[in-house]
Simulated assay, not measured.
Amino acid sequence: MALDLKEHFVKYEALVEMVDAIFSRVKTEYPKEVFCREKCSDCCYAIFDLTLIEALYIKDRFLKKFSGKPKNDLIEIADKTDRALARMKRDAFMEVRKGADELEIVGKMSMERVRCPLLGKDDLCVMYESRPITCRVYGIPTATAGKSHICGRTNFKQGEPYPTLNMDKIYTQLQLFSAQLIQDIHSTNIRMHEMLIPVSMALLTDFNEDYMGIKKNG
């Protein structure tokens, strides 16, 4: 990935720092409720996608951290994971086409468990320092589209009042970062910022100029 995205990554890292501060504050205020600890890998089996800025960031950090056999081994794992996710999404799409309730299918998908390709054999994230925002907030109460979410391993009680992180605002900011990036690189794919990319696909994708829709001189 030859693109220079440092300025965009700095903005993303500032958002990550803010999110980490929120998590730390909630953990300090509710030490008995927040269960997160080393080798608790519950969130590492959750299915979620990355915004474009997150996908570019994690791929950049992946290439800087790994090379040779370790890199190839992780790419192989990511490929297997991505194939499994593709099958699940295809099956879900077919169910909806046959008349199944879309919200019900989405709910079923959210309950599926797929091991993250970045989860090591020792149940530790091999890119913990660069993990996505979704991973960073998994152990505290969050809300998306007006619905609250809590990790099943925490001691937070559903329905009780707790500080809750509004993920819609976080996702909006990530989309804005992605849109600004697409504008700044003069991509012909003007709606590319709307992409949602699984971690596995982010590791497999070559985010080169052709992929990003950048016209070459001449």
Rank of each mutant, 00 (worst) to 15 (best):
M1P: 05
K11W: 07
E13L: 13
L15M: 15
L15R: 14
V16W: 09
M18A: 12
D20H: 02
A21K: 15
I22Q: 12
R25S: 11
T28P: 01
C36M: 10
R37Y: 09
C40N: 13
C44F: 04
Y45G: 03
Y45K: 11
I47G: 00
F48Q: 02
L50G: 03
E54N: 09
D60A: 07
D60G: 00
R61A: 01
R61L: 02
L63H: 07
F66N: 12
S67F: 10
S67V: 05
K69I: 09
N72K: 13
L74W: 07
E76Y: 12
R83N: 08
A84W: 03
L85Q: 11
K89C: 00
K89T: 00
A92P: 00
E95Y: 05
E95V: 01
G99I: 07
L118M: 10
L119R: 04
K121S: 10
M127L: 15
Y128T: 00
R131K: 12
R131E: 01
P132I: 02
P132H: 06
T134I: 08
R136P: 04
R136A: 03
V137A: 05
I140T: 09
I140M: 10
A143W: 04
A143K: 14
A145H: 13
G152F: 09
Q158S: 08
G159A: 06
E160K: 15
Y162H: 12
P163C: 06
T164P: 05
I170W: 11
Y171M: 10
Q173W: 12
T188L: 10
H193Y: 15
H193L: 05
H193E: 12
L196D: 05
A202E: 02
A202G: 01
L204R: 14
D206L: 08
N208K: 08
Y211Q: 08
K216D: 09
